[in-house]
Amino acid sequence: MAELPDTVADALAEASDDLRVGARNERLTVFVAPAPIDAPGKLSRAQVEGRQDMYVGAGRPLDTADNAWFHEHVHSRQSYETGSGMAWFDDASAEYYAAWLAHEGDHVSREAFYDYVRTDEASDAVLRDTESVTDSASYFKGIRVLAALDGEIRDASDGERTLQDVFVAMNAHEGPVDDEAFATLVEEAAGEPRDEWLATYIGTDAVPAVPDTLGDRTTDRLAAAQLRDEVGDASLVGAVLFVSALVVGVGTLLTRRD
């Protein structure tokens, strides 16, 4: 591993506490995948009795905003179902909060966080038209739009609410979250409509500016507003499992299939 196992386990536990969006698993088992598996990571969408699995490549570091450990953890906290116009949100939110958690946990600098979320890659994409969760627009244009939207919500609410409040509401939403439902949840968090803003940056190739207020430590400020997220949540049990023979076997099988 590029990182010590205890360091990763501690970082994931801290990230779980910092990300207050609900949808915690009773147990999240983390497999570490050595070569020949070279994918950054993957979360199993299967969930059995509050337990879920993910794997991350052994060579993946913690000290990067492009953080596979936190990206897959954020995926494990997504219990909503996306509807029309919202396929991009899964990877955009996982990528944004992976970078945010890396900064919040002091794994990367403020400058590294901003450099990453202000990317110009795939800037001409129209997120609403994104159908595939593997589309690079979801990662890159998506992370920039969510960073800017987080700033919009913070500014409109005088720092009392953030994009995490929208995430909480999405996880609690009954039925698929389409673009109209998303606009409603954003309005509830911001305290005022953001329909035109969303139509511009999700529905066209326009690119928003990212403000300088996202790197501020927010855990204390969020605690009261998001206390409801913690009520009834099961505690996280993190386990980093080393099963080299099994994982190498799977990797060999995947290589043969290619």
Rank of each mutant, 00 (worst) to 15 (best):
E131D: 13
A169W: 00
S123E: 15
T134N: 11
T134Y: 12
A125V: 00
E152M: 03
L127P: 01
E131Q: 13
S132A: 15
E196P: 03
D150V: 02
D106S: 15
L149N: 05
F113H: 01
V145L: 12
V133C: 03
E174V: 10
T204E: 11
P176K: 12
D155H: 14
P176Y: 06
D179W: 07
S123F: 01
Y201N: 09
G203C: 13
E160W: 00
A169Q: 13
E196L: 11
S109L: 04
A122S: 13
R154F: 07
S157E: 13
Y116V: 00
A147C: 08
F167W: 14
V186Y: 04
T184Y: 04
V186C: 12
E111M: 05
E111Y: 01
E174W: 03
I153L: 11
Q164V: 05
D115L: 08
G175T: 05
T184E: 15
L198I: 15
E180Y: 09
D129F: 03
A122V: 03
G203N: 10
A206Y: 03
T184H: 11
F182C: 06
E180M: 07
V168R: 14
S157P: 11
E180K: 09
E196C: 06
G105E: 10
F167Y: 15
I143D: 00
A125E: 12
L185S: 07
L127T: 02
E188P: 01
F113A: 01
F113N: 00
G105S: 14
V177I: 09
R154I: 14
E111A: 13
D195F: 02
Q164W: 02
A122Y: 03
A169M: 08
E188R: 15
T162R: 14
A148P: 00
Q164Y: 04
